[in-house]
Design a protein around this nucleic acid. Sequence first.
DNA 1: CCCAATCGGTTTCATTTTGAAACCCCTGCA
DNA 2: TGCAGGGGTTTCAAAATGAAACCGATTGGG
Lengths: 147, 147
Amino acid sequence: MAATGADRDWTDPACPVARTVDLVGDRWSLLIVRDAMEGPTSFTDFRRRLGVARNILSDRLRRLVDHGILRTSPSGRRHVYELTEAGKDLFTAIVALRQWGERHAFADGEPHSRLVDTEGRPVAELRPQGQGGAPVTGETTRVERVE
Amino acid sequence: MAATGADRDWTDPACPVARTVDLVGDRWSLLIVRDAMEGPTSFTDFRRRLGVARNILSDRLRRLVDHGILRTSPSGRRHVYELTEAGKDLFTAIVALRQWGERHAFADGEPHSRLVDTEGRPVAELRPQGQGGAPVTGETTRVERVE
DNA sequence: CCCAATCGGTTTCATTTTGAAACCCCTGCA
DNA sequence: TGCAGGGGTTTCAAAATGAAACCGATTGGG
């Protein structure tokens, strides 16, 4: 479910990139979602993995729940956060950020974690394509602005 | 060229997602890169399109240049910023964020800008795949941590 | 049953970041 | 020569962040 904009003040209301950045483009939200990809996660698990301050984590979890990206599991006494469908759908964006980081944010030979499938093989590199299947880049595309 | 880490204090040094977020995961950097995708852009063009404060824009442009994502064009009196290869390579990540926004950050029927190829056809949806070509999701992948 | 530990926070307060506005220098040009 | 941009920096107030203390509800052990 999308926020309607009545309660928000978007940086650039017509741009999907800007809206996404408004929703998850801070220091912690995407890392919270990244960790939640591994399964239901408790408050203290997030704390331990991320080292984020309690009040900030509390606030981010609340925001992510409000935006329909996380939900808190009703079952279980030690209640946990898990991704909604919208949250799981951030997988592609996180993979894209991961792949860029692998290519450009590490020195040659510097080790880093990898994303692999159930057989342990690395995930293929994402490649934007046109409807016909031909690769596209920033140079061969344009943003059609809406009036 | 990648930052080596000597001058930085990464949130999660081994995670490419976290490093990418450290580099461009603030309120403005990705939007600056998004705009730069359309071609060389001047300081005041960024200002006009983004409405960002001068000092913040100044700081972000410097950071992006330092990180090898933008360079300032040597030619031209009215000097401009343009993407390096590493900057252009953020295209995929921006497309992924855009597509998530299109799916989840707009109410039904609410208009938004679109990314189209040179023939005006929308770009196809990104879909992570294993090496064999089979689709993968957060549930069918795992992060192989590095020791 | 009572005590202590753990979980999941909130509150408080200092530090950092952000943003608006004023100011500044340089270049082109009328 | 003067003045209108462009491309910033400086200053200062406001907002976000983070560390630490605090707190109530569970839970597990003696």
